[in-house]
Amino acid sequence: MIRKLHKLAQRLKSSLWMLVVPPTVWALHFLFSYVYAAVRCAKSGSAEVIVDIRTGIAVATVVALLLVVAFGYIAWAQSRVRGDLPPYQDSTDEDRLRFLAVSTLMLAGLSFVAILFTALPAFVFEDCR
């Protein structure tokens, strides 16, 4: 099963869209989390306990993290294409694929941490104040 997933991930075509997806997922998660909390707190008042807000943000966080991990796994699998050793600076198709894959992998890691930090305030604060 894992080998099939790995081979499927390696066969996917790497492009700049793969590079953009993890930061976009983080940006959408950021937007959802803060707008959702702001709207819910504005409607219910400042002393409202934010248990239901936490639940919504937790679900959004899990979905966003799963998406980022999936694209990170695809990038990791694509960076393992056989060929020359680093540095990947030649103008070959394999080097371009590896460059995009390693860049996507790093952005996926950064986006993973950013999503965790975006969700952190919902789990630290007790109410809307």
Results as ranks from 00 to 15, higher is better:
R96G: 02
Y73N: 13
S79H: 09
V51I: 08
T104A: 12
T104P: 07
L31Y: 00
A9I: 14
G109P: 14
P86Y: 01
F30L: 05
A108L: 05
R82E: 15
A114L: 03
A108S: 13
L110V: 08
V81S: 08
A77S: 15
V124Q: 14
F112A: 15
C41S: 05
R54A: 08
L97F: 02
W76F: 07
V51C: 02
A47H: 09
Q89S: 01
V39T: 07
P87C: 03
S14K: 07
V102N: 13
V20A: 15
R129A: 06
A38S: 06
F125G: 00
L67Y: 03
S103Y: 00
R82K: 15
L100H: 00
A114E: 00
H6S: 13
V113S: 11
P23Q: 10
S91C: 04
G56I: 02
F71C: 04
W26L: 07
L8E: 08
L12G: 05
G109Q: 09
C41T: 07
F99C: 14
A60R: 04
R40N: 08
F71K: 09
R129M: 05
I50R: 12
M106D: 14
K13S: 15
V124T: 11
L67R: 05
A70L: 07
L67I: 14
A70R: 07
M1G: 03
H6D: 12
L12H: 08
Y88T: 03
S15R: 03
V35T: 11
L105G: 13
K4C: 04
D90Q: 13
A77P: 13
L66M: 11
V62A: 13
A64G: 06
I115Q: 12
C41Y: 01
R11V: 05
G56Q: 03
S15L: 01
H6T: 09
L19V: 13
A37I: 02
L5A: 14
G83I: 06
A9G: 10
L110H: 03
K43I: 14
F112W: 09
L67P: 13
V49F: 10
T55L: 12
S111H: 14
G72N: 12
L28W: 01
L28Y: 03
L105W: 08
H29K: 07
S79P: 15
R129E: 06
V20G: 15
L28F: 06
F32H: 08
V124G: 10
D90T: 13
L19T: 12
D93N: 01
T24F: 06
V25F: 04
A38Y: 03
S44K: 14
H6N: 13
